[in-house]
Nucleic acid binder design. Sequence first.
DNA 1: GTCTATACAGTGATAGAC
DNA 2: GTCTATCACTGTATAGAC
Lengths: 184, 184
Amino acid sequence: MVKTVFEKSDAIPLLAEAFRELGYEGATLSSITARTGLSKGSLYHFFPGGKEEMAEAVLDHVDCWFIAHVFQPLEEEEPGAAIAGMWQAVDAYFRAGQRVCLIGAFALDETRDRFPQAINRYFVRWISALAGALIRAGKDEKTATQLAEHAVLGIQGALVLTRATADGKLFTRALERLAAVLEI
Amino acid sequence: MVKTVFEKSDAIPLLAEAFRELGYEGATLSSITARTGLSKGSLYHFFPGGKEEMAEAVLDHVDCWFIAHVFQPLEEEEPGAAIAGMWQAVDAYFRAGQRVCLIGAFALDETRDRFPQAINRYFVRWISALAGALIRAGKDEKTATQLAEHAVLGIQGALVLTRATADGKLFTRALERLAAVLEI
DNA sequence: GTCTATACAGTGATAGAC
DNA sequence: GTCTATCACTGTATAGAC
């Protein structure tokens, strides 16, 4: 059986899922080969820097997705629609809480110290993009920043609690509540 | 040099800090021996079940702390004072966000599946204790449960964001905002 | 009760055949 | 570009001296 064409970009979503579910330390090369169907040799061909380069590629991939689907709309589109779109995108991306935030999970342990800029950048841009939309929607700067911080933090917390309690409806319920707080 | 008396209970806070900072997979026996000053032999003497038993002991220790300092006060004392005490205890326990929630961190990766009951129990009790206090303070049951969920999830999210952004003031600021939401 | 020595599986990573 | 074979090393865990 000959392996068909398989590009680096095809591997990244599978790598992302591995790191998301197992964590950086927990995602061993064995588990990664099993999930991607690629041998270690192929993985090192695509990512000469090994596991760390794989994680960097995954972080970049996640960041790009959020820029395209969340941050840029918040920064450029009509604020009401962009914010509504954010809640939709977030619920879909995190599969109603069944999927964890890779970057949030990396932030919690010493993995953060491997990728500090990538982790920081993601959250800072999310908060500032949302704050910007809230300002364009009429909030003053201080309130907008606080509300944005509150919303982003709430999403991360909802992911933790959804997994911890195994309550499948918690996430979507939390998003609705967070969306309501933004209206205050 | 003779090792002085060192009880199992003395090791647990050090183990807790190791798991908290490094994660379950990241906390290797080498790092644990370095942090506790106990050799592998001694560790296995105290915890014959190895790393898993160490983590169980730590989870139990954390749970007991929260029962004594947070859950029971919420369940038994005057609600206003108990809730105010909760915010104080949380800010102190998590060192204004410099310290991560071990149980929340465990919830995010496959470590959850090792200790599902302990993780679930902690968060369920926290939410129900807080909801109970809110009910005694005059909220209706549905509102109280939602607000309690919102508060606990906010704490977890604030821990993620504090570490991610390295903004030392974020955590305390978030707690103030979360406390304000409970008043609504 | 504490340690050192050790077993042995699994780790990330590399070399080289095809 | 993909694989297998293999490397040196670290992982958890155990045995046994003191």
